[in-house]
């Protein structure tokens, strides 16, 4: 009889262990929202088109929105793959056939990010192409600035 009880208890403990493991962990990680401003410096060349790629290197980040830049030629929302939303990598591009184009340093886009956890996010920006009004590739620098947490 004792043996039967012992075996039953052993079996019950084996069954209960995986159940305990599958219980959901309490959500304790903080969520905050922050903008990320992206700038291009095309020096003296008028910026008629650009394309860049942004990747998250550290932290848990999801892209929740994309908006245009400061110059009227780039104020409209740029092109991006909607599949990149809720993701940590995005390709963004825009062009303008306007005669009034920005040169020098200009903010071309702002990304709105959802950051989960305490790890400070780090990003990698790669400028795929920048072009002048004639469609010729022009050297330019790309950089970002972290905005105030909302």
């Amino acid at each position: 009889m004792k043996k039967t009880i012992f075996i039953t208890l052993c079996l019950l403990s084996m069954v209960s262990v995986p159940t305990a493991r599958t219980e959901p962990q309490p959500q304790s990680e903080a969520i905050r929202f922050a903008p990320l401003h992206v700038y291009i410096d095309s020096d003296q060349a008028p910026l008629a088109a650009y394309q860049f790629e942004l990747k998250t290197l550290a932290g848990h980040v999801e892209i929740v929105g994309v908006e245009g830049g400061e110059h009227p030629a780039y104020r409209h929302a740029p092109y991006y793959d909607p599949a990149a939303l809720a993701n940590d990598r995005i390709i963004i591009a825009s062009y303008s056939t306007d005669t009034d184009l920005p040169d020098g340093l200009t903010r071309i886009a702002t990304l709105h990010l959802q950051i989960t956890g305490d790890i400070e996010p780090e990003y990698e920006l790669e400028l795929t192409v920048a072009a002048d009004a004639d469609g010729r590739r022009t050297p330019a620098e790309i950089m970002y600035e972290k905005g105030e947490t909302e």
């Binding site: 088109a49 825009s94 056939t97 795929t128 192409v129 469609g135 590739r137």
Partner: peptide, 14 residues
């Protein structure tokens, strides 16, 4: 295929 293709086409259309 990049934004320069779209830009070239936009210029042609205009």
């Amino acid at each position: 295929v990049n934004i320069l293709d779209a830009f070239a086409l936009a210029r042609q259309i205009e």
